[in-house]
Design a protein around this nucleic acid. Structure first.
Lengths: 120, 120
DNA sequence: CAGCATCCGATCTGATACTG
DNA sequence: CAGTATCAGATCGGATGCTG
């Protein structure tokens, strides 16, 4: 989206853009307890491909939400950690989690209902 | 994404998926003060195409975040309004807004820095 | 193990044009 | 004015294979 007309009461756009990728929020959330290596990240998250994880991390790094630390060892070792802005995003993310706890069923019901209506 | 492996500590996925569209969050936010007609929505938001707005509203309706009310009048008149779950999403969204106020500059700086480093 | 390059398929945005 | 259909372009997710 970049920087388009930025309706005054909606600075939320930048943040929504940052989280737009399918896995972005999940990766940030997975890093909430401390630095992790790519392999550990994949294991925890489950279902994310190798390439997509690297891509997501690249973008997070590029936006300053995550730092990449490389250790000069025999088997290459890398760790990713949240920056201050990245940690800050955990607040909205946990708000989203609370919302899900409260309303997930309503959403699923609404979808079922819509499916029934159209499916006959 | 649908219903994939749902890491226990990350129910946030459903909500992230709901907001995944480029305009989803923006439309919800635009409806926060009350029902609006599609035309009004487009005017407020700015930069969203006719088709994409309808598509976004369709999906929101399908997920039970928005209701569509049709008035049988001479010039067709339609209004969209938030449901309870939809209104509930305003909480996480405003948390995202606060995050943006606080960290938007950091993100932009990080991007500039990344651009400089690679651009020489 | 970490990362990159390539290719394919699915999806989304956006422009245009047409129907009630 | 609201909504749908169609088409082109871009992006994204995912699988695979190769390099350090």
């Amino acid at each position: 989206m970049g920087d388009r007309e930025f309706t005054a009461d909606c600075q939320t756009r930048l943040a929504l853009d940052l989280l737009s990728g399918t896995w972005t929020g999940v990766v940030l959330w997975a890093l909430r307890d401390g630095p992790l290596r790519p392999g550990e990240l994949r294991a925890r998250i489950g279902g994310i491909s190798h390439k997509v994880l690297t891509g997501t991390l690249r973008r997070l790094e590029h936006d300053g939400l995550v730092t990449r630390r490389r250790y000069a060892e025999a088997p290459p070792r890398v760790e990713y950690a949240l920056t201050a802005p990245g940690r800050g995003l955990l607040v909205p993310l946990s708000a989203l989690g609370r919302w899900t706890e409260r309303y997930a069923d309503d959403v699923l019901d609404a979808r079922d209902l819509a499916a029934e209506v159209s499916g006959r």
